[in-house]
Computed example of a mutant assay.
Amino acid sequence: MDEKDLDPKGLIRESYKIEGITEDQCRSIFLDWALSLPGTIEAKVAIEALLIRNQSQPADHPMTSILEQGRVQMVNPKRRGGWRSRNRN
């Protein structure tokens, strides 16, 4: 998996550089990251790769905690709704 695909905007990488970043800020960054992830990459796979890539970071860093939570809770969302769901006869 290409680094550019893994973290397209460099959000996760940069979050580890922000001194004093909070868990809430990391959660917001994580959401932005998840929304920018290419549709061809499964989020759980990307999270695993990010955790491996950042294993040298402090274990108590808030982004590590958010990634760990994401690994457990993240599912690849399927689009629901649209005209087909509204146009049922």
Rank of each mutant, 00 (worst) to 15 (best):
M1F: 15
D2M: 07
D2Q: 09
E3I: 15
E3D: 15
K4E: 13
L6P: 02
D7H: 09
D7Q: 08
P8R: 05
P8A: 09
K9E: 14
I12F: 02
S15W: 02
Y16M: 06
Y16K: 05
I18D: 01
I18Q: 05
E19W: 11
G20V: 09
I21Q: 04
E23A: 08
D24P: 03
Q25V: 06
S28D: 11
I29F: 10
F30Q: 01
D32F: 08
D32M: 13
A34G: 10
S36T: 12
L37T: 06
T40G: 08
T40W: 04
I41G: 02
A43P: 02
K44P: 01
V45D: 10
V45A: 11
V45T: 10
A46L: 02
I47S: 00
I47A: 01
E48V: 14
A49Y: 03
A49T: 08
A49C: 08
I52E: 15
I52S: 12
R53D: 06
R53Q: 11
R53F: 06
N54I: 02
S56W: 10
D60G: 07
H61T: 05
P62Y: 00
P62I: 00
M63P: 01
M63E: 01
T64S: 04
S65C: 06
S65W: 01
S65L: 10
I66W: 00
L67A: 02
L67Q: 01
L67E: 00
E68S: 13
E68G: 11
V72L: 10
V72H: 06
Q73C: 07
M74Q: 04
P77W: 10
P77A: 14
R80V: 15
G81Q: 06
G82F: 02
G82V: 01
W83I: 14
R84G: 05
R84S: 15
S85W: 14
S85K: 15
N87W: 05
R88Q: 10
R88L: 08
